[in-house]
Design a protein around this nucleic acid. Sequence first.
DNA 1: TTGTAGGCGTTATCAA
DNA 2: TTGATAACGCCTACAA
Lengths: 333, 333
Amino acid sequence: MATIREIAEKAGVSSGTVSFILNGKADKMRISASTQKRVLEVAREMGYLPSISARRLRNEGEKNIPIITLLWTLDARASLVSRFLQGIQNLSLYRDGLFELLIQPYENGKLHEVDSLYTGTRFNGAIITNASNEDMDFLENNKLKVPLVVYLRETKKYSSVTVDGKLTGNMVASYLADKGHKEVGIVIPNISSQAIELRQEGFLNGITEYNLKNTHTLSGDFSEDGGYKTMRALIKQSGELPTALFFLSDPMAIGALSACNEFGLRVPEDIEIIGHDNNEQAPYTYPSLTTVHLPVEEMAIACVHQLMDTINHQIESPVSLQFKTEIIERRSC
Amino acid sequence: MATIREIAEKAGVSSGTVSFILNGKADKMRISASTQKRVLEVAREMGYLPSISARRLRNEGEKNIPIITLLWTLDARASLVSRFLQGIQNLSLYRDGLFELLIQPYENGKLHEVDSLYTGTRFNGAIITNASNEDMDFLENNKLKVPLVVYLRETKKYSSVTVDGKLTGNMVASYLADKGHKEVGIVIPNISSQAIELRQEGFLNGITEYNLKNTHTLSGDFSEDGGYKTMRALIKQSGELPTALFFLSDPMAIGALSACNEFGLRVPEDIEIIGHDNNEQAPYTYPSLTTVHLPVEEMAIACVHQLMDTINHQIESPVSLQFKTEIIERRSC
DNA sequence: TTGTAGGCGTTATCAA
DNA sequence: TTGATAACGCCTACAA
């Protein structure tokens, strides 16, 4: 908390001297050992913490590169950040050092606690991911100081990079109908998410459209464990099982496969399972997981491009970019 | 690149006026529409980019909180960041806002390209993860401006948070010997990593110690795909198989299980498989994966504590903290 | 409605 | 050896 000048005063030297000592240039400047020791002592006592922004301002000189922050939730979805980053790392803008990328964790539903969105004191632009409905409300209703791009959420106010969630849901319903299913179910992660809701809505509408019957609407934690427990509960109860289940997230589908294996329910013979996301693990489950491919890598690149264009004043008003999903057929469905 | 003053000059107004306009306070200040328009025009032309550090310095006022950066590699291991963060999010230091946490991606083997380690212009301290041997050499041989804690690598020069990799390797060998195995193999991710080398060394020493025979030393990409391909190649070749395989990373073991399932090799009857890390997916594979638990969450907390103590001058010389691993028995071994 | 000046913390430079 | 000072870019209270 102490500044270099406060230390200087207390140690009875000038701030320049303190700076040299604290930065290991004391010997080069031939500052006496006793002074060094005294200053270091005082700095420790006072709890000196260099001000990064002051340092940086001083050194910034010519190159003032935009800082882009990826706001990612500190929850189970943290593992999804991996694919997003892998998209960005091949981006030439990134390799040429035309922007600096940082990831800042935030707590789901508490985007409003990220002060720097108001103050603009941390980054030149942000990519918002995994926003809950409350987070979206916050974004819609507040004037922020920083350009934003919203990932996987629809909004009129900001640029966004999305997929057509309803269409995805419909596509899955159609796919199941084509495979001859009559009674199907859906398993939803219990998180607040517009993207999840749209998929669900599209699926349920599709069910009606294709004359299927929705026998089960289940929910559980967004995790392997959540999927496992949901599936186990379904197996243990005595009622009829649907012939197919649509899991709105791959980790849940993976947990469910595990429950099926454990309790002797055969996939796909007794029940078919389809997931969503096409995570890295999906091809390697048993049986391998049929799932909806979400083009995360391409969307990540689009997010960066949109944000950079906004920061560089190339874009005037919000632009919405929509990507396509597709079903990847494997063994489970 | 243009500063507020340059814009002011070009637009023929003062820098204060420009500031008001650029920050949306023009109306409050009753600046004429024509001036506003002109200034915005010029700002766009000149490509104005606010200097984050200047803004921040101006606003910092009383609270100068340490910024901690997690330097994480932009490769397959990005998915492991999830458990690390989950450790930190429960930390009271974090919840009380006693530090700011950022994640900065870096390319494996190119830690030396992270300039801010020399300049100290981005963060007050860093946690280095996934360092390759070249990265470690770089750290050992350079004087950096920022306090560091090294995760999962041993070093005398910096504080570190590790496990005893040799002991882990030995433990696995002992475990396999106890289960009656005679001929075993090891599968190594082809990345440069001291941690991997230590595990391998400990395992091979253990093999000798417990009178086992090491029939296969294989390697592959650090990923599910790498494990799958390695296992498939092993199955396809006609020679004898070992009765147990130690995979030095869970994703590889998961890929290998998939290959076994696909080609009709029964686990654990025909071959036993043990992994390393205890990733979230390990309990949900088929069969569930026996693996070595790496206490990532606890280690993450230790990293932050050590780093904060260093930043706050509580620690004088490097401290090395060692955590314990343990074998989690499931079905695969 | 616009301009001016001071200050945030650090560091390079120049002077003593 | 050490001290004083200017400058980095932005913001804002105050003056005009």
